[in-house]
Computed example of a mutant assay.
Amino acid sequence: MYEVDFVEFPSTSATASGEFFARAFGRQVTPYGPDYTDVRAAGLTFGFRADAAEQPGAPLVTIRTDDLAAARTAVEAAGGEVTAEPFAFPGGRHFHFREPGGSELAVWCPE
Protein backbone atom coordinates (compact mmCIF):
# COMPACT_ATOMS: atom_id res chain seq x y z
CA MET A 1 0.00 0.00 0.00
CA TYR A 2 1.30 3.45 -0.92
CA GLU A 3 -0.71 6.52 -0.02
CA VAL A 4 0.14 10.22 0.28
CA ASP A 5 -0.87 11.25 3.79
CA PHE A 6 1.63 13.91 4.83
CA VAL A 7 3.04 17.14 3.40
CA GLU A 8 5.77 19.11 5.18
CA PHE A 9 6.18 22.85 4.62
CA PRO A 10 8.96 25.26 5.55
CA SER A 11 7.74 27.87 8.05
CA THR A 12 9.21 30.90 9.76
CA SER A 13 7.15 29.94 12.84
CA ALA A 14 5.79 26.42 13.27
CA THR A 15 3.75 27.65 16.24
CA ALA A 16 2.13 30.46 14.24
CA SER A 17 1.41 28.12 11.32
CA GLY A 18 -0.32 25.64 13.62
CA GLU A 19 -2.30 28.33 15.41
CA PHE A 20 -3.44 29.71 12.05
CA PHE A 21 -4.89 26.36 10.90
CA ALA A 22 -6.54 25.80 14.28
CA ARG A 23 -8.20 29.23 14.22
CA ALA A 24 -9.01 29.46 10.52
CA PHE A 25 -10.16 25.89 9.89
CA GLY A 26 -10.67 24.32 13.32
CA ARG A 27 -7.94 21.74 12.73
CA GLN A 28 -6.28 19.59 15.40
CA VAL A 29 -2.72 20.78 16.07
CA THR A 30 0.10 18.76 17.65
CA PRO A 31 3.17 20.84 18.51
CA TYR A 32 6.51 19.02 18.82
CA GLY A 33 8.39 21.94 20.34
CA PRO A 34 8.96 25.41 18.91
CA ASP A 35 10.38 24.20 15.59
CA TYR A 36 7.79 21.65 14.46
CA THR A 37 3.99 21.41 14.42
CA ASP A 38 1.59 18.91 12.82
CA VAL A 39 -1.88 19.95 11.63
CA ARG A 40 -4.43 17.22 10.85
CA ALA A 41 -6.67 17.95 7.86
CA ALA A 42 -9.18 15.36 6.57
CA GLY A 43 -6.93 12.32 6.13
CA LEU A 44 -3.85 14.40 5.41
CA THR A 45 -1.39 15.85 7.90
CA PHE A 46 0.49 19.08 7.26
CA GLY A 47 3.83 19.49 9.03
CA PHE A 48 5.42 22.90 9.54
CA ARG A 49 9.18 23.02 10.15
CA ALA A 50 10.72 26.26 11.47
CA ASP A 51 14.31 25.02 11.99
CA ALA A 52 16.03 26.58 8.96
CA ALA A 53 18.78 23.93 9.02
CA GLU A 54 16.22 21.15 8.49
CA GLN A 55 13.56 22.87 6.36
CA PRO A 56 12.69 21.39 3.01
CA GLY A 57 13.35 23.74 0.10
CA ALA A 58 9.80 23.17 -1.09
CA PRO A 59 6.79 21.30 0.29
CA LEU A 60 7.85 17.71 0.99
CA VAL A 61 5.17 15.20 -0.03
CA THR A 62 5.39 12.04 2.08
CA ILE A 63 4.03 8.64 1.07
CA ARG A 64 2.94 6.12 3.70
CA THR A 65 3.82 2.45 3.39
CA ASP A 66 3.71 -0.67 5.55
CA ASP A 67 7.20 -1.82 4.43
CA LEU A 68 9.93 0.81 4.35
CA ALA A 69 12.62 -1.55 3.01
CA ALA A 70 10.42 -2.70 0.13
CA ALA A 71 9.55 0.94 -0.70
CA ARG A 72 13.22 1.86 -0.81
CA THR A 73 13.94 -1.07 -3.13
CA ALA A 74 11.06 0.00 -5.39
CA VAL A 75 12.23 3.65 -5.43
CA GLU A 76 15.78 2.69 -6.39
CA ALA A 77 14.67 0.09 -8.96
CA ALA A 78 12.51 2.75 -10.64
CA GLY A 79 15.45 5.17 -10.93
CA GLY A 80 14.98 7.21 -7.75
CA GLU A 81 17.93 8.34 -5.64
CA VAL A 82 17.81 8.12 -1.83
CA THR A 83 18.80 11.56 -0.48
CA ALA A 84 18.34 10.87 3.26
CA GLU A 85 18.86 7.44 4.77
CA PRO A 86 16.03 5.99 6.87
CA PHE A 87 15.75 7.62 10.29
CA ALA A 88 13.36 7.56 13.24
CA PHE A 89 10.98 10.35 14.17
CA PRO A 90 8.02 10.44 16.58
CA GLY A 91 5.60 7.88 15.13
CA GLY A 92 7.82 5.93 12.76
CA ARG A 93 10.74 5.92 10.33
CA HIS A 94 11.24 7.51 6.92
CA PHE A 95 13.68 8.25 4.13
CA HIS A 96 13.86 10.96 1.46
CA PHE A 97 14.38 10.40 -2.23
CA ARG A 98 14.63 12.35 -5.48
CA GLU A 99 12.63 11.07 -8.44
CA PRO A 100 14.19 11.26 -11.93
CA GLY A 101 12.48 14.61 -12.68
CA GLY A 102 14.24 16.22 -9.72
CA SER A 103 11.51 16.51 -7.07
CA GLU A 104 12.33 15.37 -3.53
CA LEU A 105 9.74 13.31 -1.69
CA ALA A 106 9.75 10.99 1.33
CA VAL A 107 8.36 7.60 2.29
CA TRP A 108 7.40 6.78 5.87
CA CYS A 109 6.27 3.75 7.83
CA PRO A 110 4.58 3.86 11.25
CA GLU A 111 6.25 2.05 14.13
Rank of each mutant, 00 (worst) to 15 (best):
G26T: 03
A53M: 06
E85Q: 11
Y32M: 10
V4T: 04
A84D: 09
G33W: 12
V82I: 07
G26Y: 06
I63Y: 02
L44K: 10
A88Q: 11
P10W: 08
F89W: 12
A74N: 05
V107K: 08
A24N: 09
A106N: 12
T45A: 05
V107D: 04
E8F: 01
F89L: 12
A88V: 07
H94Q: 12
P34W: 11
E104D: 06
P59C: 00
T45M: 06
L105E: 06
W108R: 11
R64L: 04
T83Y: 14
V82K: 12
R93V: 13
F20R: 15
F97S: 06
F87D: 07
D35P: 04
Y2W: 12
T30K: 10
T62L: 01
A88W: 11
C109H: 15
P10H: 05
P34Y: 10
R64N: 02
A22W: 00
L60C: 03
G92F: 14
E54D: 02
P90V: 05
F87Y: 12
A71Y: 03
A58N: 04
D38E: 12
D51P: 05
E8W: 00
R98C: 10
D38N: 14
P100C: 14
A106G: 11
F87H: 13
T45Q: 04
E111A: 09
F87N: 10
F46P: 00
T73R: 15
E104P: 08
L44I: 14
F20H: 10
P56D: 01
A71T: 08
A77L: 14
G47Q: 03
G18K: 00
R64Y: 00
E111H: 11
R98Y: 15
A84G: 04
L68C: 02
A71R: 03
A84N: 05
G57A: 13
T45R: 09
W108D: 09
F21R: 04
V75R: 07
P110L: 14
F9T: 01
R49E: 06
G80D: 10
G91Q: 07
T30Y: 04
G43H: 11
